[in-house]
Amino acid sequence: MIYEEPRFLSGGDRAIFIELGDSIDPDVNQRVRNLQFAIEKAGIPGVVESVPAYRSLLVYFEPLHISAPEFREAIGDLLQSLTSSELPKRRLIEIPVTYGGEFGPDLELVASHSNLSAAGVVRIHSSARYLIYMIGFMPGFPYLGGMSPDIATPRKTTPRLKIPAGSVGIAGNQTGIYPAESPGGWQIIGRTPLELFHPTREPPSILQAGDYLTFAGVTPDEFDTIKEAVRSGTYRLREKSIE
């Protein structure tokens, strides 16, 4: 639920949290995104950067340029006018995924855990629209909301030492994508040929907090074709604006 009055929480002498609600909720998160946008647009002097999360925005500022009380006052005014500010449309981004086989070694396990066929898991996973609540944990890693509880599966009891970059997995009632090779305990059901994060690209992350994504199944051959296009810089991300 959205708080009537936002909570300002201390993040030390150079940062402040603005907490806007008490739960993981698309409306609360939308407000976080709006606030970040409004702060950027207002160009408040002394603001360094901000980090959106599920229900709060952490704003870093330069205390010798703007005092915390001055900053809180400036934010208070912005919060008043939030609904009327012109917000950018959200993007819906399509993430191609090859499910199963060597790309998704745990697909069968998720299927049997869910009493579904592998195709049934893929159908459910690729038909939902997922909200990117925030990016964190590692560069470009999206925290997604919106997965069907029908395919929820616990993590592996023993994590794998190496999960390839692009792996799409399920952990409990969450789904996610590993932007880089990493150890991890998620049940891996597929892999995307896209590079979610690339340090020398601007912005470096394809995904941004507040956007939505969908997964679209592709064949292993299509995987290779897309991967090659990504490598040569000719791949065009499939995205559209949504209300």
């Binding site: 030390g12 150079r14 949290f17 229900r55 925030m134």
Partner: peptide, 10 residues
């Protein structure tokens, strides 16, 4: 907690 940002020195 519901995950949030982490300031330097937290």
């Amino acid at each position: 907690i519901i995950s949030d940002g982490i300031p330097l020195g937290a």
